[in-house]
Design a binder for these strands. Structure first.
Lengths: 340, 340
DNA sequence: TCCCGGATTGCAAACGCTTGCGTTTACCGT
DNA sequence: ACGGTAAACGCAAGCGTTTGCAATCCGGGA
């Protein structure tokens, strides 16, 4: 059996409560006894029992991570791994546990969430995606559970804690960048814009166009529901139009790679015939040829901040629902060219 | 306060122990009372308190997931996400919790593992990668902790539970496939072969060559330590040799995409000038142009089996250390061509 | 000298569940 | 009719912490 608080207490010649209190650095214990207790703890290699501590203090020190359902095509996006990495890193430091929750469909996820909250398995949830009309968010709100969102809140925006990039600004900057390179015919290719990040980047794109006095052309703004297969109609129509764009802003690296494929298929070369700028700066952006100019959104940091907010709110229940914006930055590579 | 076992007991008119036992389907409770208790549980929406249950039964019902340290380039590989998804899915069903453990370097990971085991936060670990001389495995073995490996065991192979593909066979099949297409000059491009999967695939490749009476050429067997940057010397030398291969087996999709880049750089087109077959069948394989013929290794299933084994061993401590092989299958796409 | 207050520390009751063992009840064989 | 047995259930002692409150000690002021 592992070493318990009693062993430490015995060795230090104090009561278990004193040991417990020195762990929490309670001010009502004198510095000398604290020191004595600490020595005893070190000597025995004591680590408080997680379960017992949680039971007594009525919490779980674990936070649930909600992934999108696996039905979605976007599932394999390395973004999620990065975010999880950030969360996990922060949790490890703060002696929290994290548990990822998935399911084939929303019902499975909701079911898992329900039993977890009822059995006191989690103190809160981090939702790794943000889309409009999400039943998961509805559930969380209705039950009054603690959660933080990575991405921008849509429902209940004012009461929810979220961590996001300034995707509007990022969309603008991407557009500006292309304008500065001399492009005037700039299109936007986005994934399903019920996903908040895509909607925001698109808005930013439109804002920047207006600011530069460029027209908002409907045919320059295409949305594909998932990762396009070969010969996606919408994309081909865009690329083969007589008046095709000279540059495209793509809401995600993965989509950009798919776009590159379409380009090759119709005989366009990048960046000579078409400039591409995308978002996320995942491995995808670095592996393609040419490498993609991409806006890095600091995925790992998003996770870290999310975990940090989560734990903060767990330990200080009446904090306000703050929003945190993580900076992005543009990584120039070879997929955009100056136009004369 | 949530509904406890006492509430259920009171409503059903039995003692708490009876409720507890019906939860476990203990045979010493009559079917009628069980039914009565179950009705009470349903009526109250009872869910046993996770912490209390764990404390009393001296376990944690949580399993740690060890990712490779983030220093490694391979980190962003969607394979890990898939494996985590599998694990998480299985855990959710069995009312287990999982927690991913990462760190900047091995020390950070080891530190996290140490405090977790000492505080009874985990019942065991699933290690998502397998490489030679891994300090993490050393630690697990020395402490006598329960763990299962995804990938082939290197150290302590006989006592460790592992879930793997038959990478040797897969390597052979990939080679056979190319042979059948008429290729004779087949090369192998692998990532760091201290990673077990890469070493095995390479062995399979070599075995198949021998079987076909083809020579094992040293210059046809290149290993790159990480994801190659532009103009990787080894790869370029291979591609620009006078006697260059007509086909290459690549140990990982990501690497294959990088290879594709190099091909474009030196003016080789796929599959006309060079056939490529790779492993993992991740999103990468589907996004490139041409799409990659790849061997799917069932990443998600690997996770599911790992979790299943883990929980099995947690609940039946004296089970033998079995090995499980998850099948792979070849997905034909457009990166290989028949040679005359 | 006595009382009081602050600073330290210990007591013991939770927290909600599990489980070994004892008790009860019913039934069987003799 | 009675001891014996097995089935079904309850008692109560944990599991290792936390924490409100009581207890103790000490110094200082009256």
């Amino acid at each position: 059996m592992a070493v318990t608080i009693k062993d430490v207490a015995a060795l230090a010649g104090v009561s278990p409560s004193t040991v417990s209190r020195t762990c929490k650095d309670n001010p009502s214990i004198s510095e000398e006894t604290k020191e004595r207790v600490r020595r005893a703890m070190a000597q025995l290699g004591y680590e408080p029992n997680f379960q017992a501590s949680n039971l007594a203090s009525q919490n779980s020190r674990t936070i649930g991570i909600i992934l999108p359902t696996s039905a979605r095509d976007a599932y394999e996006n390395p973004f999620y791994l990065e975010a999880i990495r950030g969360i996990s890193q922060f949790c490890n430091h703060r002696q929290y546990i994290n548990t990822v929750i998935t399911g084939k469909d929303e019902d499975e996820v909701l079911q898992a969430m329900r039993t977890m909250t009822r059995s006191g398995q989690v103190d809160g949830f981090i939702v790794l995606y943000s889309k409009q009309q999400d039943p998961v968010i509805d559930y969380l709100c209705n039950e009054g559970l603690l959660y933080v969102l990575i991405g921008k809140a849509y429902q209940f925006a004012n009461q929810t804690i979220y961590i996001d990039n300034d995707n509007l600004l990022a969309g603008q900057e991407a557009t500006e960048y292309l304008c500065q390179l001399g492009h005037r015919k700039i299109a936007y290719l986005g994934s399903d814009s019920s996903l908040m990040f895509s909607a925001d980047r698109k808005s930013g794109y439109q804002t920047a166009l207006l600011r530069h006095g460029l027209p908002l052309r409907e045919d320059y703004c295409v949305e594909v529901p998932s990762i396009p297969r070969d010969g996606d109609l919408l994309i081909h129509r865009l690329l083969q139009s007589d008046d095709r764009p000279t540059a495209i802003i793509v809401s995600d690296d993965i989509l950009a790679v798919a776009l590159e494929r379409s380009c090759i298929a119709v005989g366009l070369s990048i960046p000579e015939d078409l400039s591409i700028i995308s978002f996320n700066n995942s491995l995808f952006a670095r592996l393609t040829s040419p490498q993609l100019t991409s806006i890095d959104i600091n995925s790992c940091q998003l996770g870290i901040e999310a975990a940090s907010q989560m734990i903060n709110h767990i330990e200080n229940p009446n904090l306000l629902a703050t929003k945190i914006i993580v900076p992005h930055y543009l990584i120039e590579r070879d997929s955009c060219r100056q136009i004369s």
